[in-house]
Design a protein around this nucleic acid. Structure first.
Length: 445
RNA sequence: UGGGGUGUAGGUCAAUUGGCAGACCGCCGGACUGUUAAUCCGGAAGUUGCAGGUUCGAAUCCUGCCGCCCCAGCCA
């Protein structure tokens, strides 16, 4: 059922209007545009409005002498974010932003808008996030959402082109995965508590034994009381898992993957990056091979830069920034101390104090966008790690089965979508990289 | 959870040593034929986060509470 067939639906049918992005090839023609008023300016006998329809922005010009008093008054009374239908002639004019404008002949208000809260002047972030549902309409937020869309589409295309299969992993899970204590909890019928997933990885390992190359892509939940520019309570993560890949293969995949995403944004979303005033030079440099440095060498390097981390402790945000800033491209830090990392990472045969893992640090202070590893594929070693960490052994029975029935070398990683979008867009806080961010103090809108 | 800030009109912020609650943007009315966050004139707009206290008098000083921001930790 189309909207137009609904009883009482009095808006004109949607097929007879033109999209703003199509106007440059329609110079001289009469068209009807539907959209929202973003700004208005008026003089005594000429008035301007900028319209937005999701495909672009259009300056509409009205001359009192041309349209008559009724249409003139309707036009002059327009307020910010009124939805309208405007009919007029498309023309090229150097004075118009974008070079194309619409000389309006008739206007119809479809939805009035009185006292729109977000004005063209400055606002604080608190106010803006309380009005996130309306803030999304601003140029900057539109640009960010377009880049995010491109990142997501690039992710799907990359894996599809390379023969990966998408496997959707559960969001409601029993306690399994990363360390407990930071899980969102909910009641689950007669089975007690269920937890919102923090990772799809363990399930993906099972799927990798069926399909070879797999990935999952969905929301992830962390109940940590994090209050930093890099953390959200709900964020999107894409996790590939590949049978027969070792840690080296895994890092090569990450280089190709990240480079592909960045290249796609540069190719297709350059206008949006310009709107965001993003300096694209650092992005142009993103290509394989990335810089690589072992955890142990990274410690030496940041020590030379004035920081000091005892061997065995994870790198902090400051150290990551120091390290990343000393390279002109993303950097892969590999083989972290076993004690700082998760139980499922494979022990490094050449140096058992470390594991075969890596993080990928984005340049320009954006920090860790990827964490990945080769997985422990030896049943007995994995069981020993589960016991050593005091994890509930019975919960991992099915996971251990994967090592019992045809175990296989395999590796994978997780890339944080919001962190990647924030980096590519050059925005300071990841809460702007998702339409409706979830933070410990913010659940609505 | 720890450290540092902050809270005044719809928004962004001022208010001297404790002495009449202010400006700009937005909004409303008016003027203006090419504006780019238009400009000019006029107007409306306040429980100074909340609850107590000191004082002739509190946005300002004191006590308690609350919200938010930044940094750290957790990680993607």
């Amino acid at each position: 059922m189309t909207p137009a067939s609904l009883p009482g639906y009095d808006m004109p049918a949607m097929k007879d209007h033109t999209r703003i992005s199509d106007l440059p090839v329609l110079i001289g023609q009469s068209v009807t545009i539907r959209g929202w008023v973003t700004t208005t300016r008026s003089s005594g006998k000429i008035a301007f409005a900028v319209l937005r329809d999701g495909t672009g922005y259009l300056q509409v010009v009205v001359s009192r002498a041309e349209v008559g008093d009724d249409a003139w008054e309707r036009f002059r009374a327009l307020t910010q974010e009124t939805s309208v239908s405007v009919t007029g002639v498309v023309r090229a004019d150097a004075r118009s932003p974008g070079g194309v404008e619409l000389g309006a002949m008739e206007i119809a208000v479809l939805g009035p808008s009185v006292d729109f809260p977000i004005t063209p002047k400055e606002h604080g972030t608190t106010f803006l996030f309380e009005h996130r549902h309306l803030w999304l309409r601003s140029r900057r937020q539109v640009a960010i959402m377009r880049v995010r869309h491109e990142v997501v589409q690039a992710i799907r295309d990359f894996f599809h082109e390379r023969g990966f299969f998408l496997v959707d992993t559960p969001i409601l899970t029993a306690a399994i995965g990363e360390t407990a204590g930071s899980l969102f909890e909910t009641d689950y019928f007669d089975l007690g508590k269920a937890y919102l997933a923090q990772t799809g990885q363990l399930y993906l390992e099972a799927a990798a034994a069926a399909l070879g190359k797999v990935y999952c892509f969905g929301p992830t939940f962390r109940a940590e009381k994090s209050k930093t520019r890099r953390h959200l309570a709900e964020f999107w993560m894409v996790e590939p898992e590949v049978a027969w890949y070792d840690s080296e293969d895994n890092m090569r995949l990450q280089e190709d993957f990240v480079s592909y995403i960045v290249a796609r944004c540069l190719e297709r979303r350059r206008e949006d990056l310009k709107e965001l005033e993003r300096d694209t030079a650092p992005l142009e440099r993103v290509a394989p091979p990335f810089h690589r440095i072992s955890y142990t060498d990274a410690l030496k390097k940041v020590e030379g830069l004035g920081a000091s981390v005892p061997w065995g402790k994870d790198l902090g945000g400051d150290e990551e920034t120091l390290l990343a800033n000393s390279f002109d491209r993303p950097v892969l830090v590999f083989n972290y101390p076993r004690e700082a990392k998760a139980f499922y990472m494979k022990e490094n045969p050449a140096d058992p104090k470390t594991v075969l893992n890596n993080d990928c640090l984005a340049p320009e202070g954006y920090g860790e966008i990827i964490g990945g590893s080769q997985r422990e594929d030896d049943h007995d070693r994995l069981l020993a790690r589960i016991r050593a960490e005091g994890l509930p052994e019975e919960a991992y029975g099915w996971y251990l089965d994967l090592r019992k029935y045809g175990t296989f070398v395999h590796s994978g990683f997780g890339l944080g979508v919001e962190r990647t979008v924030a980096w590519i867009c050059g925005i300071p806080h990841i809460r702007e990289a998702i339409a409706f961010p979830r933070q410990m103090h913010r659940l609505r809108p």
